[in-house]
């Protein structure tokens, strides 16, 4: 098992290397002179030269890359062109709102979506199932900003239950934190409930037809035990995958939601940086997002091992074992690819 985890960690290193190379080349290979892009239209030749020297643009590419990587490894992500502050500080400031929103959204979604999906699969074809599916279609198809403004209009303007906008760190008081993060969470959670409920339902439907579910029933077990212990545990792998990827997506930027509710998160930092061509910030944000994806994928892989003993003990017992024993868990691939690319 430790060998498996070690292999996964080692495999993540080249991935991050490629991402770093890509991000590095992004600035260097953009058409035109990066210094000119950075300096803007009104810069004098002396200013351009100064920027070139400070960025090391006169060195060979390999040397530049090496210097840049070693800076990164020392935690130096450069300085924002727009604000003049170190990039690392900018990002650190924006992390808390984003991570808070991601956590509240995912936790709430899982708590609601998994039971919904299980019940929908169990009662396949009934009114309950159709209601869950309808909810899921709505969650997928109604744009986040529409839901956001509807929530504000209903809960803030008319009922006055929640503030319209803004964010309070959890350190300033738990009550206030939840009071302010509630609406953005509700807004975003609809999409994730739709997604997770759907995946849960699909995997459960597949598993409920399996022989061991019939065995569990033949043992005279209560239906809740059959569903939760025998069926749900066996579809935890695709569900965990979707939850993990969903979490990574929120962290790497929920631009619309953050804009609607005026949350000072990473999404808005990214948009601002792109609009003002703040390359050091863009680079750092891409690197960070990639790192988050890699780490979460790593955690998902480790979760597989914990949840499915067939992966834990996977070693060649017989020459060509049945494909179901060794193949990576079912239904993961569609889960990843069907993820909507907007929030």
């Amino acid at each position: 098992m430790y060998v498996y985890i070690l292999k996964r960690v080692l495999a993540a290193i080249p991935v991050m290397g490629f991402v770093a190379l890509f991000v590095f080349l992004l600035l260097r290979l953009t058409p035109g002179d990066p210094a000119a892009i950075i300096a803007g239209d009104t810069a004098t030749p002396e200013q351009l030269e100064a920027i070139r020297t400070s960025l090391g643009l006169n060195d060979p590419l390999a040397v530049q890359f090496f210097n840049w990587i070693s800076q990164l490894l020392r935690g130096d992500f450069g300085t924002s062109i727009l604000s003049g502050k170190p990039v690392i500080e900018l990002i650190a400031d924006r992390m808390e709102p984003t991570i808070s929103l991601a956590l509240t959204t995912i936790i709430l979604s899982v708590l609601i979506a998994v039971p919904l999906g299980v019940i929908a699969a169990w009662k396949q074809g009934t009114l309950i199932d159709r209601f869950v599916m309808l909810l899921s279609v709505l969650g997928f198809s109604v744009p986040v900003f529409v839901i956001g403004y509807l929530m504000i209009s209903l809960f803030s303007m008319q009922l006055g239950w929640f503030p319209v906008q803004g964010f309070r760190p959890i350190g300033d008081g738990v009550g206030d934190f939840f009071h302010r993060i509630a609406l953005p969470t509700f807004t975003l959670t609809l999409l994730y409930i739709a997604l997770i409920a759907r995946i849960t339902r699909t995997s459960m439907l597949e598993i409920l037809g399996d022989d061991y579910v019939r065995t569990a029933r033949a043992k005279g077990l209560p239906e809740t035990r059959v569903l939760m212990h025998h069926a749900l545990r066996n579809c935890s792998v695709p569900i965990i995958t979707v939850i993990g990827i969903g979490f990574a997506l929120i962290i790497s930027g929920v631009v619309v939601t953050e804009s609607v509710f005026n949350l000072p998160g990473l999404g808005r930092l990214t948009v601002d940086a792109v609009l003002s061509r703040d390359y050091p910030v863009i680079q750092a944000v891409i690197l960070l997002a990639s790192l988050i994806y890699v780490v979460i994928n790593l955690l998902i892989d480790i979760a597989y091992v914990l949840l499915d003993p067939r992966i834990r003990y996977a070693r060649p017992i017989k020459p060509p074992p049945s494909p179901r024993l060794t193949a990576s868990p079912r239904s993961c691939a569609p889960a990843r690819s069907s993820f909507p690319a907007r929030s």
């Binding site: 022989d211 065995t215 005279g220 212990h229 025998h230 545990r233 003993p309 067939r310 049945s322």
Partner: peptide
């Protein structure tokens, strides 16, 4: 449910798939 396993029980053809793989 109360009769199954107590008064009557059943075994199946494919013992690999009839057992829960993660328990």
């Amino acid at each position: 449910r109360s009769l199954r396993a107590v008064s009557m029980s059943m075994i199946f053809q494919e013992p690999m798939t009839a057992l829960n793989p993660v328990a």
